[in-house]
Write a protein that binds this DNA or RNA. Structure first.
Lengths: 138, 138
DNA sequence: TATTGTTATACTCTATAACTATA
DNA sequence: TATAGTTATAGAGTATAACAATA
């Protein structure tokens, strides 16, 4: 039995993404973080006082879906919020949140290394621009 | 505001996969097919008398999840089933199913072309092996 | 017994509508 | 009014357990 879809780049792209995400989540599990939560911590770490809506835009998560995720991070005291302009909330990491974010970033970078290791050396420099081109155009 | 994850290949991989899948589903919508349904029709078209379980293995869909999808395709008279060995069912496309599968395959190939078009020419031959390498190793 | 099909169920992601609050 | 946060809800997709049917 043969899978004819394995010659389609779109199918392989999806399979690769699913497989690598699962691999990452396995590594993040000891930190008690999912990939989305780890992404948010990283984003807030790099952008103190970012709003919830801005987080959602940068991570392509819609506000109604992001809300309970952020609330859980606040409940866990990894993120703290203060009032911003309008109804906006400014998000910052707590000390615990910062410590966990740094661990998450370490895992992200190890993950990045694993992915690069799977790519033939002469193609590594092309990987990021290639994936951006596959994402961007529509 | 900057998204630090955009320098991680794993993040870009996921974004690209989601974006391209959405693009494909838009093209398949006029056929009344989702990407999964179109994949199954293509698979059965290339492997007449394939079983449901084998479909699931090749497409990485677990049997309990595949069951209602196949049943819907049978209800729509795109797929017909006959008894195989054990409890297995042999799946085949009906004439309507074959006609629709051919249209779906045309859409898959157009999709493939769009993806290749986004890739710099000197990297096109590397695309499939690259994505397979990103999928496979773990 | 091993494999397949089936049912039930639960959890996560995602999508939309509608509401409240504030510059 | 426009933007942000919030709530409710519905639909995919995915995961596990358990049962039925058949070689």
């Amino acid at each position: 039995m043969k899978n004819p879809l394995q010659s389609y780049p779109g199918y392989l792209l999806r399979r690769a993404a699913v497989s690598r995400l699962a691999q990452l989540e396995k590594r993040l599990e000891p930190l008690g973080l999912g990939a989305t939560e780890a992404s948010i911590l990283t984003l807030v770490h790099h952008n103190p006082d970012i709003s919830q809506a801005e987080c959602g835009r940068l991570l392509s998560i819609q506000r109604p879906n992001l809300n309970p995720i952020i609330r859980r991070l606040i409940e866990r005291e990894l993120v703290a919020s203060s009032k911003g302009v309008g109804r906006a909330l400014c998000l910052r990491l707590t000390d615990t949140g910062t410590a966990l974010a740094l661990q998450a970033i370490t895992e992200f970078e190890a993950h990045e290394e694993r992915i690069y290791a799977a790519v033939p050396e002469h193609l590594r420099a092309d990987l990021i621009p290639l994936l951006m081109a596959l994402w961007a155009p529509q």
